[in-house]
């Protein structure tokens, strides 16, 4: 699954002498597993606690031998609606972000626009703006416009991560589309819009998927805007409810951890199903900016 992302896979140092080094390489696997086990232990613990029967805040057993899904039943009963809210906000943010970021990325990559460089610079500067500064100003604006406690308001605010990221990732990709292919469409009489829709979009499919997946995760995992731009329990993303859940002097951690596991499912699914897009996203969004 990982070979797709590694052009230099076969040229690691010592690759030629590989056969003589079989035992040593297995030793590396052992160290590698140890590193991952260390890094993922908190996630194992999350899962372990979520599967324990409710028993007050006592020391959790190391393994879930008393396996039960009670924690999940409670979590879905109490947090199901909030999970749906998060899902709506996440999907809405994907649709909105891709709708405005894709044409912009194409314009910046392929048109001779004087604006392209200042816009790129502006996008990089946005990365320095703290979320709390945005929230501070948006709160009063949202209050005036009646957008507090609305899904639409959260979609717009949460896209603040997805839009710049999507532009950067897709711009890097679309810059790589050979000029001749797009020009062929122009020769056939297509305008910018038709060339974009029927030639560029299909070619940029992978970049779109990468941008969309990450935009979803950003919006799904957002906490700051959920915390500041909602004031009632009507619209409450799962991140905020998890925070208030933990803060309320808990004596039973299994439903909390079950909620945490449920809120982590999109990330886990993404890593298992769409791993190659993840690698593109992490490096594409950061190194190429």
């Amino acid at each position: 699954m990982s070979t797709t992302t590694k052009p230099a896979a076969s040229t690691a140092p010592g690759g030629q002498r590989a056969r003589a080094r079989q035992p040593r390489r297995l030793g590396h696997t052992v160290i590698g597993v140890a590193i991952i086990a260390f890094m993922l232990f908190p996630l194992y613990w999350m899962l372990n606690v979520s599967l324990q029967p409710a028993g007050g805040a006592v020391a959790t057993p190391w393994l879930p031998f008393d396996f039960t899904l009670d924690g999940y039943a409670t979590a879905i009963r109490e947090q199901g609606g909030n999970l749906v809210t998060s899902l709506l906000v996440g999907l809405g943010s994907v649709v909105f972000s891709l709708l405005i970021a894709t044409p912009a990325a194409y314009a910046m990559a392929q048109f001779e626009l004087r604006w392209a460089t200042p816009v790129l610079f502006g996008i990089l500067v946005t990365q320095m703006v703290p979320g709390i500064v945005v929230a501070n100003a948006l709160y009063s604006a949202y209050s005036d416009l009646g957008m507090l406690n609305t899904i639409g308001g959260l979609i717009l605010a949460d896209s603040a991560a997805g839009v710049p990221f999507s532009i950067l990732v897709m711009r890097a990709f679309m810059g790589g589309i050979p000029r001749s292919i797009v020009e062929a469409a122009y020769v056939d009489g297509a305008g910018h819009v038709r060339a974009f829709v029927s030639v560029v979009l299909p070619m940029a499919r992978n970049a779109l998927i990468t941008a969309g997946l990450f935009t979803f995760l950003f919006a799904w995992g957002d906490f700051l805007f959920a915390l500041t731009l909602t004031t009632t329990e009507d619209v409450r993303p799962v991140t905020l409810s998890l925070y208030t859940y933990v803060g309320s002097f808990v004596n039973d951690w299994s439903p909390i951890m079950a909620t945490a596991v449920l809120s982590s499912l999109p990330a886990i699914a993404l890593l298992l199903v769409a791993q190659r897009y993840v690698a593109t996203g992490v490096t594409g969004g950061a190194v190429k900016s």
């Binding site: 890094m39 908190p42 996630l43 799904w220 995992g221 906490f223 905020l240 982590s264 990330a267 993404l270």
Partner: peptide, 8 residues
């Protein structure tokens, strides 16, 4: 994984 799950 630790980076992709919601920070909260």
């Amino acid at each position: 994984l630790p980076w992709l799950i919601p920070m909260i």
